[in-house]
Design a binder for these strands. Structure first.
Lengths: 106, 106
DNA sequence: GATTCCACTACGATTTCCGAAGCGCAAGGG
DNA sequence: CCCTTGCGCTTCGGAAATCGTAGTGGAATC
């Protein structure tokens, strides 16, 4: 039991978008969703794909995202995006193309 | 002058999307872009719209986003999304609708 | 020339994040 | 049976990011 894991900021304000922007604004949250867009991954594999992010933060973020119904555990102990999260993932796809144009301007 | 403001993580990996996810994963970054989607805002007004976020973090984040060519100062000293950032903003619009469905599941 | 307002900056307190080490369990080897 | 290995985390001390109150400096107003 147990996470201190603060509630999603703004989640009670009637402005879900604010809660979402807060959740996605936690470090590695977007990256984790991105890496899980094509299927579930076990803990260590996910960590490797996220530039070896620290296991403590990964664990915390998995908790956050799972509590937010964006991730769920698979039968074999891996982590999978929920149906909802997959829809969100679809919305994020265009960021890839955009980021390439953006990179040229840096 | 100048900011320590760490480089965008992954910006040298040839994977712009990773750099982008890192930048947007800094606290308040997404929210700031969201609030500026309909036009420039002066510092204090922006702070108020972002739940009174601390001015020090706001200042840092404005620096980050400006260095990333997502924001630019206006002639009268406010902050405005660049053309690029506005395109990004368009991509984020659907998140609003998605978040409303998501909120029901919490 | 004093006051107000605004855009920040300074800086100590607090929270988050990092990363090396360890724990508990399950599978495999000898 | 041990013993080792691998995996999914958890612990915990230190580093870094964020917060929040209190300025600072400049421009406009009184």
């Amino acid at each position: 039991m147990s996470k201190p894991s603060r509630a999603v900021r703004g989640s009670r304000t009637g402005r879900p978008i604010m809660a979402l922007l807060d959740l996605l604004g936690r470090r590695w949250a977007l990256r984790i969703l991105w890496e899980l867009r094509e299927g579930p991954l076990p803990f260590t594999e996910l960590q490797h794909r996220c530039d070896q992010m620290s296991p403590s933060t990964l664990s915390q973020r998995l908790t956050d995202l799972t509590e937010a119904n964006l991730l769920e555990p698979t039968a074999d102990g891996a982590h999978r995006a929920t149906r909802q999260a997959n829809q969100l993932g679809e919305l994020l796809m265009p960021l890839d193309a955009w980021s390439k144009k953006w990179a040229k301007s840096l």
